[in-house]
Design a protein around this nucleic acid. Structure first.
Length: 414
RNA sequence: CGGGAGAUGUCAGAGUGGUCGAAUGUGCCGGUCUUGAAAACCGGUGAGGGUCAUACCUCCGGGGGUUCGAAUCCCCCUCUCCCGGCCA
């Protein structure tokens, strides 16, 4: 959630920032108005409560002294009566405010490039040259057919479209990648976690998926539980409503989980292959950092993911997202896009974001600085998406006959 | 899923209608003492809102109710522990 006090006091600046994310000034004005209304409502209500409390305290005194209570009682009852509409107003004002505030995206950092969509993202650098093939490289689903790696039909039979089954070598490759990723993250100081794949609504709200993106999530019937869309949700919320000490920071966490997404808005995109599935595996990094140190941690996370791709010998590029392409919770995001020779283009394989204090406010994650409690910064990033790495290995390590080599670093894992 | 017990500050644990945001211990922070540390002693120490700062408001698992007044009484829910069932 954005800082409403900041919005109140720096409206112009806040408005300019959120325009990058396509938020209308009118929407912000509405939010600011709701905040003011709530404060006003609370002020009147609290004054009335104070009155009520002080009168109630007199009762004990009066009774001890044997005084007549009936007059006081009449007064107190009248005040109580008068408080009901105030309470109602305050409650409504609060509901109205939160409905809007929770749907408001994070402020982008000042350094985020302007732009509407992914066309306007900025390439920062390329790592490794794509190798040239002496034949026309195939796409991963063609290679899958030759090697019998992915069973699309039976995945659909078991669940529905956009589910698939990995078989034999592919399944082993997946397992090897997960281990390789976790080991690499651990070597950089990330502590490994194994977490629930179902989280409750409060946690999903903490990281920003709810209430706005409910349609993208799989929900368990009759339970307050959702299949997680990313390990960012459980890992970040491990510290939901906690106050950390300064010396605990930064907390670096990693974990492997399957991820479940309805992909509600992506009908017709990447329907072939396993680029976009309802269920996919991912190894995630999450950091909880001191506000002064989050930029540094962010850099480290980007480099870590990039280094893993490099170790796998996968050419990729580092791309900074423009304001319009930035996710709801992110203040800044860097994508890693891996080269797919079969598709002849770079495709996203990792996305690393600093949410600043946006999630921390929602999830109430604070740390003690002296006597004061302050919000931490939370960061998250893939290192890496497993399914897409398999695609990348298939396409980059293919031979003319359709066979696929295994990257050197993975051999000890298979 | 059935039976029983419980949920209070970092933790342990008192508190069963008013002056309780909450005893005491513990932990943590600061100080005295010490070459240093331990021990001992002294002081400080929950969260959120509000305010320039005070006042003031809210919070004793969550929600509702009774009452002038609820941590304390009543109802519902959730969770934890013990016993039984089922089970990797």
């Amino acid at each position: 959630m954005i800082d409403l006090k900041y919005l109140q006091n720096n409206f112009e600046e806040a408005s300019t920032k959120l325009q990058k994310k396509g938020v209308e000034t009118a929407t912000l004005q509405n939010l600011q108005q709701l905040f003011t209304t709530l404060k006003d409502c609370n002020a009147t209500l609290e004054a009335s409560k104070a009155e009520q409390n002080s009168m109630s305290k007199l009762f004990g005194q009066y009774m001890k002294e044997g005084k007549d209570i009936s007059e006081l009682k009449t007064k107190v009852n009248a005040n109580k009566e008068a408080m009901i509409p105030l309470q109602d107003q305050a409650r409504k004002a609060e509901e109205a405010l939160y409905a809007v505030a929770l749907a408001m995206p994070n402020f982008p950092d000042e350094t985020v490039p302007d732009g509407m969509d992914e066309e306007d993202n900025v390439e920062l650098r390329k790592v490794l040259e794509p190798k040239s093939f002496t034949f026309t490289p195939k796409e991963h689903w063609e290679l899958s057919e030759i090697n019998g790696w992915i069973d699309f039909e039976r995945g659909v039979k078991l669940a529905k479209s956009r589910f698939s089954v990995l078989k034999g070598e592919a399944s082993r490759l997946e397992r090897a990648l997960i281990n390789f990723f976790l080991d690499s993250n651990r070597a950089k100081g990330f502590e490994e976690y194994s977490v629930p794949f179902l989280n409750n609504a409060t946690m999903l709200q903490g990281t920003g998926q709810l209430p706005k993106f409910e349609d993208d999530l799989f929900k368990i019937a009759d339970e307050d539980l959702y299949l997680i869309p990313t390990a960012e949700v459980p890992l970040t919320n491990l510290y939901y409503d906690e106050i950390l000490t300064e010396k605990e920071l930064p907390l670096l966490m990693t974990g492997y989980t399957p991820c479940f997404r309805k992909e509600a808005g992506s009908a017709g995109r990447d329907t072939r292959g396993i680029i976009r599935q309802h269920q996919f595996n991912k190894v995630e990094m999450v950091a909880i950092a001191h506000p002064d140190k989050s930029a540094e941690v962010f850099e480290m996370m980007v480099n870590n993911a990039s280094d893993i791709l490099t170790a796998l010998g996968l050419p990729h590029r580092v791309v900074e997202l423009c304001g319009g392409d930035l996710g709801f919770s992110a203040a800044t995001t860097i994508d890693l896009e891996v080269w797919l020779p079969g598709q002849n283009q770079y495709r996203e394989i990792s996305s690393i974001s600093n949410t600043r204090d946006f999630q921390a406010r929602r999830a109430k994650i604070r740390f003690k600085e002296g006597k004061k409690n302050k919000f931490v910064h939370t960061l998250n990033g893939s290192s890496l998406a497993v399914g897409r790495t398999i695609v990348a290995i298939m396409e980059n390590y293919q031979n003319e006959d359709g066979s696929i080599d295994i990257p050197e670093v993975l051999k000890k894992y298979m």
